[in-house]
Simulated scan of single mutants.
Amino acid sequence: MKTNLDEMLAFVTVVDSGSISAAAEQLQQTASGVSRALSRLEEKLAVTLLRRTTRRLELTEEGEVFLAQARRILDSVEEAEEQMALRRQVPAGRLRVNTASPFMLHVIVPLIGEFRARYPQIDLELNSDDRFIDLLERRTDLAIRIGVLPDSSLHARPLCASRRRVLASPAYLRHHGMPATVEALTEHSLIGFTEPESLNEWPLRHAQGERWKITPTLRASSGDTHRALALAGQGIVCLSDFMCGADLAKGDLVEVLAEQRTELLQPINAVYYRNSALASRITCFLDFLSEQMGNKSADTVH
């Protein structure tokens, strides 16, 4: 075989990370070393895989074809290594987990210490995105998604559910007053999401139904930004218990219109793309999350 695995890994990592410098940091190598690996690979294959400009790297047609093959080869090698670990009955290898930033910070991160103590041979890679990602393209083993899942070929494992509440800080309510009705919200500063628009439908019962579509006076893309703005007294928000349960317990946030709240539970699922038997490192992480969250009520997932 002309090419070697290190050269393939350098190529795939450059494509996935978007630059040679980012790939070098991820691979813990020098940028010049990664660049030389790419040059050797192209020389051995006698093709150009990447077009290099001052601003970006772009795959050639040959690069697209080789990328798909290289991914399959690297995945096969990783699976073979996993099988050897299974023979020792010790889950091992890299586990790539992706979820929204608030869920990562408020739920996953506090559990990582115990997971690593149980499975020291698993190398965790934690990534956050506020949008759904393509697991295969991003080489992600497992994603945790909040809300109703779109139709998909991905396998899903339910973990728990979390309630959404309308919240404000005591300082905001002292200054602006507690709204007495759902309709009175129109007189307040309402913090909404830039997308998806469905998150701007709050679970509040009113004369026309059980969801109130707000017109935000301030928008933000991240739930953590909403939380920070609410804590700073900038307006009223609607967020999940997993993010704000501790704030409610301490009194830093107060529920607004609690008697009008409808029970809108957001399902939380782990999704993965492998059709064959799950790798042991994925299985043990799924089992661990189910153990930690699956038996909790929506009130306690925070």
Rank of each mutant, 00 (worst) to 15 (best):
V301L: 05
S153H: 11
E43Q: 01
G209K: 07
H176P: 11
G233D: 05
D252V: 14
R88P: 15
T48Q: 04
E114V: 10
I20M: 05
S290Q: 06
D75I: 15
L135S: 06
E64C: 13
R157S: 14
I146W: 00
A270H: 06
L253C: 06
Q29H: 09
I146C: 10
L86Q: 15
Q89Y: 02
T194R: 07
L229D: 00
A156F: 05
M104E: 02
L167T: 12
Q208V: 12
L27D: 05
N275M: 10
K250A: 14
R274T: 13
W212I: 06
I214A: 13
P267V: 06
H155R: 09
C160M: 09
S189T: 05
G209L: 09
A37F: 01
A46V: 15
E81F: 11
T53G: 05
S297D: 01
A184R: 05
D75G: 12
R163K: 12
D299S: 02
V237H: 05
I236V: 13
R131A: 03
R94M: 12
V12P: 06
T181F: 08
E79H: 07
G18W: 00
L41G: 04
M243K: 08
C160V: 12
T13I: 03
S290C: 03
R72V: 14
Q121D: 11
L57C: 06
S280K: 08
S153K: 09
D16N: 07
L159C: 12
L45V: 11
Y172W: 06
V15C: 09
W212K: 04
L173G: 01
R118F: 00
L142H: 00
R71Y: 00
P267W: 01
L239W: 00
L286W: 00
L286T: 11
Q234G: 14
Y119D: 13
L95N: 06
R219K: 12
D151K: 10
V77W: 02
E259Q: 09
M104F: 01
L95H: 04
E42I: 04
S297A: 03
L154A: 02
Q89P: 07
L248W: 00
